[in-house]
Design a protein around this nucleic acid. Structure first.
Length: 265
DNA sequence: AATCCACCCAACCGCTCAAGC
DNA sequence: AGCTTGAGCGGTTGGGTGGAT
């Protein structure tokens, strides 16, 4: 494991916290300087960028500021209802994979979506009796965490993380993924709901696991979900919201898309 | 008007992974 | 093969803000 504070020797540039670089909110002057530099010289080489751009910031901070705020195509302002619906759908499929979710929502950043989820959507789901982690109705049994928004570590979220091993970032095979097993909402996509899967065996399963797909296929599938909005709107009347959450259609394993609760706005 | 409190979100932190040497 | 660096991710923090008292 790499710890900058430990591994960074004389050759490396310590993080801003170690050398008294500026932290905290960016000033308009800093924004302008960073934007001007990147527009002129392009992104990349973040570690050395601050020095080249004349900024007293660490590279990480510059990259974050650019990615989340200064990029020309970053959309600011209120999350639209259709965007919200899309976030809900994608989160059900991907879990807390904010960058993947953001990649499907033009102009929105992973940070923005993560914040919106934690401050709005998770609470909204809880108020609707839906577990924001599993997207299933909250148990009627006493729950010590009821009403408390928790953001579990990856290892603590079996429903969304352990069963779903698509990881183009960390998976050595970046162009492939393995769809979730058991009660996954994607069952109807890959047509197999009984295959237990070990996330550690991704590469070995590429030839044998029926869940194994290419990224292109997954991308197409996600696109199909994104394009489901019209259909969902037309079928919302079929939902019935009860005390425990969304009724029968929510739990239909045969059609995961129908499990998305309609908006309550 | 002053204080308290809860909420929001920009920014930071810790970590992992891939690429380069 | 092992180490270093760059980049990117998800989780967490804390300052700003607005509403309640």
């Amino acid at each position: 494991m790499r710890n900058p504070a430990v591994s960074s020797g004389a050759k490396t540039t310590p993080c801003c916290s170690k050398v008294g670089l500026k932290r905290g909110p960016w000033t308009p002057e800093e924004d302008e300087r960073l934007a001007n530099y990147i527009n002129k010289d392009g992104e990349g080489r973040w570690r050395t960028l601050p020095k080249r751009a004349g900024l007293l910031r660490c590279g990480k901070s510059c990259r974050l500021r650019w990615m989340n705020y200064l990029r020309p195509n970053v959309k600011r302002g209120q999350i639209a209802p259709d965007e919200e619906d899309l976030i809900l759908r994608l989160h059900r499929l991907l879990g807390n994979r904010w960058s993947l979710i953001a990649g499907r929502i033009p102009g929105r950043t992973d940070n923005e979506i993560k914040n919106y989820w934690n401050t709005h959507l998770s609470k909204k789901l809880i108020s609707q009796g839906i577990d924001p982690r599993t997207h299933k109705p909250l148990s009627s049994a006493p729950n010590p965490n009821h009403g408390v928004v928790q953001t579990p570590k990856i290892a603590d979220t079996p429903s969304t993380q352990k069963s779903f091993t698509f990881d183009p970032i960390r998976n050595p095979n970046a162009n492939a993924f393995v769809l979730p097993s058991t009660t996954s909402p994607l069952d109807s996509f890959h047509g197999n709901s009984n295959t237990s899967h070990d996330p550690a065996s991704v590469e070995d399963d590429q030839d044998t696991d029926p869940n194994y797909c290419t990224d292109d296929v997954f991308s197409s599938f996600l696109n199909s979900l994104i394009n489901e909005d019209l259909y969902t709107t037309q079928t919302q009347q079929q939902y019935h919201f009860g005390a425990a959450g969304w009724d029968a259609p929510l739990m239909s394993a045969s059609d995961p898309l129908r499990q998305t609760p309609p908006h309550q706005d």
